Amino acid sequence: MSNQKPSPRPVEQGRGGERLPLPPLDALDAEQRAAAQVLIDGPRKAVYGPFVPLLRTPVLLDRVAQLGEALRFGGRLDARVRELVICVAARAVGNQFEWVMHQPLARAAGIDAGALEAIRVGARAEGLMADEQAAVDFATELLQHDGVADASYARALAAFGEPGVVELATLIGYFVMVSWVMNVARTPSRPTADVAPLPAWPL
Rank of each mutant, 00 (worst) to 15 (best):
L171T: 03
V59C: 06
W99C: 02
Q133V: 07
F73P: 00
G68L: 06
T187Y: 06
V195L: 15
F175M: 01
V184A: 14
M182W: 08
V100K: 10
V166M: 11
L142I: 02
A125Q: 00
V64S: 12
F97G: 00
P191A: 06
T57Q: 15
L67V: 11
F97M: 04
W99F: 10
P104Y: 08
D62P: 00
S179E: 05
E98K: 05
R80L: 07
Q103A: 14
R82C: 04
G161F: 09
Y174Q: 11
A115F: 06
R107D: 02
V148D: 00
V148I: 10
L128Y: 08
G68A: 04
T57C: 11
E69M: 12
F138P: 00
G68W: 02
D146S: 14
D137T: 12
W180M: 14
A185V: 06
A151W: 02
A113M: 07
A139W: 04
P58V: 10
R190Y: 11
V148E: 01
V184I: 14
V100H: 12
R76T: 13
L77R: 03
V64H: 09
V121W: 04
P188Q: 05
D62L: 13
A135Y: 05
D78Y: 01
A135V: 04
V136R: 04
E126S: 14
A185M: 08
A115G: 13
R82A: 04
W99Q: 03
